[in-house]
Structure formats: structure tokens, C-alpha cells
């Protein structure tokens, strides 16, 4: 069982994740060609300007108005992306099978980063349950996405600390990680793929076409 989920299934998950992501982006771009506005409106300068103002914390008026949300959201996303990529345990597995490796985050720090992600998920869950606007646009899929995001971190944490049933938890962890990877292109987690594009378009439309700004 362990061999299967940590072998062929990993392959499958990455193939679906990468292939699916490329397909999604390709599909979006080709659907945008059907519209007469999208491509003629694009401008590299204004796309970058928009991204600079929205990927740097507190670099636009709205983030300054919501300090708590902004801090949680950035901490959550930074840890979410960096932890699995630079985790020693992951790199060891990679090294064993492919003989490649790169810089790793010390385990103690990675552990805290995992906790940050879990706290982020709890924060988002809390908003979803209490903020009336968010509540009103929430359905099962939103909880599912939160669960898909949180599960690899929760199980990874349990496995690392060998809290109980190590072998089983590890298998669950790997499965959870794979589910998350597969879910990215095909659910609204695809916001990871589209963020750059929606920002670039809105930034270009506001800046290049409408001579204004979007931050």
C-alpha cells in the first residue's frame, strides 16, 4: 500500500496536476481569443504594475484597511507554497528516487509553517461560518476546498510528530497531498493558476485602456 501511494500514485498526481494546469491555461487563453477585447487590451507594463501592487503585502489601499486579513492571507499562502517544496522529508524522498535535491527549510521552522497554514485554514473557516457575506456565497464545495487544503498539513504534522499510527497516517498524508495536487486544476483552487492572468487583465484594462490604476 505504502509503495503504491508513494510510487505510481505520486507520478499520476503530478502528471494530472501539471497536465491539467497546462490544459486549463491553454483553454482559458483560447477561449479569450473568441472575445475581441482581451488580447488587444493587454499591456506588459500595466500587468506587472498590477501584480506588484497585489502580491506585495500592504501595497494597495484595500490591504491597508484590512490588516488582519492581509497578514493571515499572506502568511497562509507563503507557508502553503514554501513548506512542501522545501521540506526535508519531501526532499529526501526526491533524492532517493531521482537523485536531485535543493535547499531545505530546517524541520523546526517547517513545523511552525505547517501550523501557520492550519491556523490560516481555521481563520478562513471561521470567516465562512460567521461573516454574513461569505456565508451567503458558501456551499459544500467551499468547505471541501478548505478540507483539501488543510488535510495534507494536518496529516503531515501528525506524521512528523509520530503522534499515532505512523504508517497509516503517512499513507493518508500522501493520499491527501495527491488529492490536493489533482484538485488544483479542476476546482476553484485553480485560482492559483489564474491569479496572474485575472490581475494582469484587470491591471491592463484599468491602466492601459482606461488610463487609471487598479490598486
Amino acid at each position: 500500500m505504502y509503495e503504491f501511494v508513494s510510487g505510481p500514485l505520486v507520478w499520476l498526481a503530478f502528471i494530472i496536476f501539471i497536465g491539467g494546469s497546462l490544459y486549463r491555461i491553454y483553454k482559458m487563453l483560447s477561449d479569450c481569443k473568441k472575445e475581441n477585447v482581451v488580447f488587444p487590451h493587454m499591456s506588459l507594463k500595466h500587468s506587472l504594475a498590477s501584480l506588484v501592487h497585489w502580491v506585495i503585502p500592504f501595497n494597495n489601499q484595500y490591504m491597508q484597511k484590512r490588516p488582519i486579513f492581509t497578514i493571515v492571507s499572506f502568511a497562509f499562502h507563503i507557508c502553503l507554497i514554501l513548506t512542501p517544496v522545501f521540506l526535508l522529508a519531501h526532499l529526501v524522498l526526491l533524492d532517493e528516487s531521482w537523485n536531485i535535491s535543493w535547499f531545505n527549510i530546517p524541520d523546526g521552522i517547517a513545523d511552525w509553517m505547517t501550523i501557520v497554514v492550519i491556523i490560516g485554514c481555521i481563520f478562513f473557516l471561521y470567516r465562512r461560518l460567521t461573516d454574513p457575506v461569505v456565508q451567503n456565497v458558501t456551499d459544500g464545495s467551499d468547505y471541501l476546498l478548505l478540507a483539501i487544503t488543510a488535510l495534507p498539513f494536518i496529516t503531515g504534522f501528525i506524521a512528523y510528530h509520530q503522534l499515532f499510527a505512523y504508517k497509516t497516517i503517512l499513507i493518508i498524508h500522501i493520499l491527501a497531498g495527491e488529492i490536493m495536487l489533482i484538485a488544483i486544476p479542476f476546482t476553484r483552487l485553480s485560482h492559483m493558476l489564474f491569479f496572474v492572468f485575472t490581475r494582469a487583465y484587470f491591471g491592463s484594462e484599468q491602466g492601459h485602456v482606461k488610463n487609471s490604476k487598479d490598486w
Binding site: S30, C32, K34, F194, T198
Partner: peptide, 12 residues
């Protein structure tokens, strides 16, 4: 085209 679909499916 792509815009509407992307907006609806990106909104988190």
C-alpha cells in the same frame, strides 16, 4: 468567452 468563465471559476 474566457473572461466570464475564468471570473466565475476563480472567485474564491
Amino acid at each position: 468567452g474566457g473572461r466570464l468563465w475564468t471570473y466565475v471559476n476563480t472567485c474564491i
